[in-house]
């Protein structure tokens, strides 16, 4: 089933790579929303329901952890799985992200296979 994805990363090149990796993983995207930081992502979510959020951690204005902490209060994000995609690779960051509500964690650099490996189970659990 086609899904609506929100990709949050301060690099437009990285957003494009993530979008392409989702397609390579066989995930059919009906809509892709892109935001450069947490504030932009929250603004997008006000008017646009999504099925999956992929989010970087280190971003200006509002970082990824701060952003996902705010998601329970956002109507269009309730129950939406979040997968972090970040250069931050420590166990402490993983634990922090998962405790903030993330369902998956992908370390950069990543392959399309790793995206598939982490995102498909998350989407399967949601449906």
């Amino acid at each position: 089933m086609p899904i609506r994805a929100l990709i949050v990363d301060d690099s437009s090149v990285m957003r494009k790579i993530v979008e392409r990796s989702l397609a390579q993983a066989g995930i059919v995207l009906s809509q892709v929303f892109q935001a450069g930081n947490g504030v932009e992502a929250l603004a997008l979510l006000k008017d646009n329901p999504v099925d999956l959020i992929l989010c970087d951690i280190n971003m200006p204005v509002m970082d990824g952890l701060e952003f996902i902490k705010k998601l329970p209060g956002v109507e269009n994000a309730k129950g939406v799985p979040v997968v972090m995609i970040t250069t931050e690779g420590s166990e402490a960051h993983v634990v922090q992200a998962l405790s903030c509500g993330a369902r998956g964690y992908i370390r950069k650099p990543f392959t399309p296979e790793q995206v598939k490996e982490h995102v498909l189970p998350v989407l399967a659990r949601k449906s």
Binding site: S11, T87, E88, G89, R107, K108, P109
Partner: peptide, 10 residues
Amino acid sequence: CNMVAGNFKN
């Protein structure tokens, strides 16, 4: 550059 730095420190 960001990914090389992140991957190196990891």
